[in-house]
């Protein structure tokens, strides 16, 4: 049990961070602070995904051998391509095998969660902007951004409409 939790320590911390964000969303009536809590929650979810994609002993998924071994021969290839397409194809096959060998030597972390989270970060900012714009409009209309006061204003308006 202890070992099981120790091997998954990161997930536990990330879950606590997520719950901190959720608490900030639920336990406050202020709409701006609620959005702050939401972005806290969001960042914690990003941390969860990136933690899953980590490979121990890995490197960032950027291929360094690629530029010298493959990019260099690539330049020669284009010069030769006009001369004989067959020679170009043969060299392409050789350098492909070389590149595969090079990538097999080093350990890289999983790039797929990184890509997903890159998209999510940018989309998160877009939705945050829309949420904040809504809060600004609410403030312009009601004069407050506390949800208790907003409810009371709504009830008062409703009652006034009914009695009229």
């Amino acid at each position: 049990m202890i070992e099981l939790l120790a091997e998954r320590f990161n997930y536990i911390i990330v879950i606590i961070l997520m719950m901190t964000g959720l608490y900030a969303v639920v336990a406050t009536g202020n709409l701006v602070k609620r959005l702050v809590g939401l972005s806290l929650f969001q960042t914690s979810v990003f941390l969860l995904y990136i933690t899953i994609g980590k490979v121990s002993g890995g490197q960032p998924p950027i291929l360094p051998e690629y530029s010298e071994s493959y990019g260099g021969s690539n330049a020669g290839e284009t010069a030769m391509a006009a001369a004989s397409p067959a020679a170009e194809a043969a060299e392409g096959a050789v350098s492909q095998g070389e590149a595969l060998q090079n990538t097999a030597e080093a350990i890289y972390s999983n790039p797929l969660p990184h890509v997903l989270i890159l998209t999510a970060i940018v989309v998160g900012v877009a939705t945050l902007a829309v949420g904040l714009a809504l809060v600004v409009r609410i403030r312009e209309t009601y004069g407050t951004i506390e949800d208790e006061a907003l409810n009371q204003a709504d009830y008062a308006a409703e009652n006034a409409r009914r009695s009229a």
Partner: peptide, 27 residues
């Protein structure tokens, strides 16, 4: 430290930069 350098770059620029500016403006 989790090898996600591109994500770190984006988070520092967008999460810590633009988000903070947006929230400050709304505040």
């Amino acid at each position: 430290t989790l090898d996600a350098v591109d994500v770190a770059f984006t988070e520092a620029a967008v999460g810590a930069g633009i988000s903070t500016v947006l929230m400050l403006a709304a505040m």
